[in-house]
Each structure stands twice: as structure tokens, then as C-alpha cells.
């Protein structure tokens, strides 16, 4: 297929915000079939095919190289694959969808304020409890990478796809890695962010795939697309 495929969030606040910033950049997105259609275009940039996809799928497709460009959260690129950050270029942060991926422990753990403390607790945990320290999260790759950076190897991840903040109270995990924007959900669940436990500051980005094959037409369109956002597209 010739042209440039641009993947944008298919619904909700992210879709609205994306269309707003694109309109502001002079690239209004048309979705002729309305919310139930998954294809659109940008009249100001003929040749661009807009595909509406869930945000996590956009990250995956950018990494796999099946779309040229897309709008999705930086956290999802980091999480989708260990190769994520090498496979895509963050062209421009878009100023919405901001959230932090953080490590939070029960507030009652008064002895744990830093990652160092967590490293000590993880190291001692198995001898005292006969099992590994358990971390509930949907961010497997980000968690593994961050824990490894602090030399923490003595833990297990419990995959959690929703209501992660409830896992410690439910006895499903000892601590969590989750996304938060204000921290209020964490506090309401008796959890506290570890001082150096900010894994990633994330927001929605305009992202360009490095793994897709760029033909001449796509390169020209990329220059116009990124140029509209004040970014060099070469």
C-alpha cells in the first residue's frame, strides 16, 4: 500500500484530544463513518490513511512496523516489547494523556521509603515467607527493567489487568507497579509511591515507526506531517 498510515486512538478522551491537537496543527482528521468506522483521512494531507485503533494496539503496530506513524502513550511503547524504544521514534509529546508509571507499597511499610529499602525487603522476603515478594502490575517489561536497574531479582510479577491498586488488600500481591495521574487512587487504597519509584513519566506522543519500510511517497508525507507539528521529518 502506498501513502502513509497514521494510527490514532479509536475512542474516548484520547481520540478527542488527538483530533483536537491535529486540528490545531492544521491537519483536521475526518472520520466519515463516525465512531463505528475505523478508517479516516486528513483532507489537508492527501495520501495519509488514518486508522482508528486501541492505544495499546497502536504501540504494537508501530513496533512491528505495520503503521508508519501513530499517537499513543509513551508507556505503551516501552511496555509493548523489550525492543519498543529502539523500534520507534518519539517525534513530539502532545501535552495530553499524562500519567506516571510508579512503584507503590503499602503506606504501613514505614521501613520502605526508597528502592534500596525495597531491595533489602525483597532479598529477605523469601527466607521469611517461603515465597517471592509479589508485584502486581500490567507493566511486565517496565517493571523488570526498572527492578533490574536496582539489582532486585528476588520477586515475582503477578499480572493484573485491572484494579491493580486493590491487589495488596486482596492478598494477591505485596506491592504494585501502576499508572497514576494524581496519586489519589493509590492513597485511597493505603498505598504510597516509593521516593525513587517513578519508573516513567508518560504522555501521549506523536510516534514514528523505525521498523516499517519507508517509500518515497511516505517520506514526503512524513515531512509534511511532522512539519505541521514543528518537527523535522527527515
Amino acid at each position: 500500500m502506498s501513502g502513509l498510515i497514521l494510527a490514532v486512538p479509536s475512542k474516548g478522551r484520547l481520540e478527542e484530544a488527538t483530533r483536537k491537537v491535529f486540528a490545531k496543527a492544521g491537519l483536521a482528521i475526518e472520520r466519515p463513518g463516525g465512531a463505528r468506522s475505523y478508517q479516516g483521512d486528513i483532507p489537508a494531507l492527501p495520501g495519509v490513511v488514518v486508522r482508528f485503533l486501541p492505544a495499546s494496539e497502536i504501540a504494537r503496530e508501530l513496533i512491528r512496523g505495520t503503521v508508519h506513524a501513530g499517537v499513543t502513550g509513551a508507556d505503551l511503547i516501552h511496555e509493548a516489547s523489550e525492543q519498543g524504544p529502539q523500534s520507534a521514534r518519539f517525534a513530539r509529546p502532545l501535552g495530553f494523556g499524562g500519567a506516571d508509571v510508579v512503584i507503590a507499597v503499602p503506606d504501613a511499610w514505614i521501613d520502605v521509603t526508597s528502592m534500596r529499602d525495597l531491595a533489602d525487603v525483597a532479598s529477605d522476603f523469601r527466607a521469611g515467607h517461603g515465597r517471592w515478594l509479589r508485584v502486581a502490575t500490567k507493566y511486565l517489561n517496565l517493571t523488570r527493567r526498572y527492578f533490574a536497574r536496582f539489582g532486585i531479582a528476588e520477586y515475582r510479577i503477578v499480572e493484573s489487568l485491572g484494579a491493580t491498586e486493590a491487589a495488596p488488600a486482596a492478598g494477591a500481591a505485596d506491592l504494585i507497579v501502576d499508572i497514576t495521574s494524581t496519586g489519589s487512587t493509590l492513597a485511597a487504597n493505603g498505598l504510597r509511591i516509593v521516593e525513587d519509584g517513578l519508573i516513567l513519566k508518560s504522555e501521549a506522543n506523536l510516534i514514528v515507526s523505525k521498523t516499517i519500510v519507508w517509500d518515497a511517497e511516505a517520506l514526503v508525507l512524513r515531512k509534511s506531517l511532522l512539519g505541521a507539528f514543528g518537527v523535522d521529518g527527515d
Binding site: 503499602p106 503506606d107 504501613a108 511499610w109 514505614i110 521501613d111 533489602d120 525487603v121 529477605d124 522476603f125 521469611g128 515467607h129 495488596p168 488488600a169 492478598g171 505485596d174 487504597n189 493505603g190 498505598l191
Partner: peptide, 21 residues
């Protein structure tokens, strides 16, 4: 603090363990 947050006392770190550390 644990009781207030609804944390289980028997499946994860216990108050004595946290206090000792």
C-alpha cells in the same frame, strides 16, 4: 495503618516484621 488500609495480616509482611526492619 494496615487495618485502616484493609491489608491482610497473615499473607504478606506482618506488623512485627515491618517494625523490626
Amino acid at each position: 495503618r494496615m487495618a485502616a488500609a484493609g491489608l491482610p495480616f497473615d499473607t504478606s509482611r506482618a506488623p512485627a516484621e515491618i517494625a523490626a526492619r
